[in-house]
Measured scan of single mutants.
Amino acid sequence: IINNLKLIREKKKISQSELAALLEVSRQTINGIEKNKYNPSLQLALKIAYYLNTPLEDIFQW
């Protein structure tokens, strides 16, 4: 999986903590996703895309 979450999140000036709060997950979860240590569920990936107002395929590429 190619993961552009960190790049997109930083472009939008959103911290890991802010995104985690919006998604109701821990900051460690966001960190793990960004470091490719954790693959989000489809539901979480869709929520990330929604809150970042970015197409899912721009954030994650399988």
Rank of each mutant, 00 (worst) to 15 (best):
S17K: 13
G32Y: 15
I33C: 03
S15F: 04
Y51S: 06
D58P: 00
A21D: 13
K13L: 10
Q43F: 10
L22Q: 12
R9Q: 03
V25R: 03
Y38T: 10
N36H: 12
K6E: 10
P40K: 01
E10P: 02
Y50L: 11
I8C: 07
N53R: 09
I48Q: 00
L7G: 13
F60N: 00
I1E: 07
E10R: 09
T54C: 08
E24C: 14
I30K: 00
I2C: 13
I8T: 06
K13F: 09
N53Y: 05
A20Y: 01
S26C: 05
K13D: 09
I33L: 08
I30N: 00
Y51V: 15
L52E: 00
A49I: 02
P40E: 01
K47T: 05
L42P: 07
L23C: 15
E34R: 02
L46H: 09
N3Q: 05
P40C: 08
R9G: 01
P40D: 14
F60H: 01
Q61L: 07
S41V: 04
N4E: 04
E57C: 11
W62F: 13
Q61E: 13
K11H: 10
W62Y: 09
L42M: 12
A20K: 02
I59H: 03
A45S: 06
L19E: 00
E24S: 13
E10N: 09
F60E: 00
S41Q: 05
N31A: 13
E18Q: 12
Y50D: 07
A20P: 00
K35A: 15
S41P: 11
F60M: 02
A45G: 06
K37P: 03
L22V: 11
I8V: 12
I59S: 00
K12L: 08
P40G: 04
T29N: 04
Q28M: 11
K12M: 11
I33S: 01
L46S: 07
A49C: 06
E24L: 10
E34D: 03
I14T: 05
L42H: 08
G32K: 14
L7F: 13
T29W: 10
A49T: 03
I8L: 07
K13C: 12
R27N: 07
I33V: 06
P55Y: 04
E57V: 08
K6P: 04
L7W: 09
E57P: 05
S15W: 03
N36E: 07
I8F: 09
K13M: 15
R9S: 02
I59N: 01
L19Y: 01
D58F: 09
S17P: 06
L23R: 00
Y50S: 07
S41C: 06
S15Q: 06
A21F: 10
K6I: 05
T29P: 02
D58C: 11
W62C: 13
Q16W: 03
A20T: 01
I59G: 00
W62N: 07
Y51L: 11
E34A: 06
T54A: 08
R27M: 13
F60S: 00
K37T: 13
G32W: 14
K37Q: 14
L52S: 02
Y38K: 12
I14H: 04
A21G: 12
I30D: 00
N31L: 11
E57Y: 10
A20E: 01
K11A: 14
S41K: 06
L42N: 05
E24H: 15
